[in-house]
Simulated scan of single mutants.
Amino acid sequence: MNIVTVDNEKCKGCEFCMIKCPKKIMVKSSETNSTGYNYAVQIEPEKCTACGICYTMCPEAAITVSVK
């Protein structure tokens, strides 16, 4: 299972990771960070292939991909 970790405070909810994820497992959280943005979260980590597209697309460098 591969894990995508999002730094909630860096994420501005731009949705680039959500749009580009080939498995569509990145979604907006219903919660907000301290600056009022709905940050990205990973759902269904078992479907993640650790392709790194979310990491590459993030303009805020808020995403880390861990291969398990």
Score class of each variant (00 low, 15 high):
24 K>D: 03
38 N>D: 07
18 M>S: 09
31 E>W: 09
4 V>S: 01
8 N>G: 13
11 C>G: 07
6 V>Q: 04
9 E>S: 03
33 N>K: 09
22 P>C: 01
49 T>S: 14
30 S>Q: 09
9 E>D: 02
20 K>W: 12
30 S>D: 09
29 S>G: 07
63 I>P: 05
68 K>R: 13
4 V>G: 00
46 E>A: 13
58 C>P: 08
16 F>P: 00
29 S>L: 07
3 I>E: 08
65 V>T: 07
62 A>E: 06
58 C>G: 04
66 S>A: 14
4 V>H: 08
17 C>W: 07
33 N>P: 00
52 G>V: 06
28 K>P: 03
8 N>E: 07
40 A>H: 14
57 M>E: 11
67 V>I: 14
21 C>G: 02
15 E>I: 06
48 C>S: 04
26 M>G: 00
29 S>R: 06
3 I>G: 03
8 N>A: 08
25 I>F: 04
20 K>V: 04
53 I>G: 06
26 M>V: 04
57 M>I: 10
56 T>K: 15
68 K>M: 13
8 N>D: 08
32 T>S: 09
13 G>M: 04
13 G>N: 09
47 K>C: 02
67 V>E: 15
7 D>L: 03
68 K>H: 13
12 K>C: 03
34 S>Q: 06
5 T>Q: 13
43 I>G: 08
2 N>T: 05
10 K>D: 00
47 K>L: 14
39 Y>L: 12
38 N>Y: 07
16 F>S: 05
42 Q>F: 00
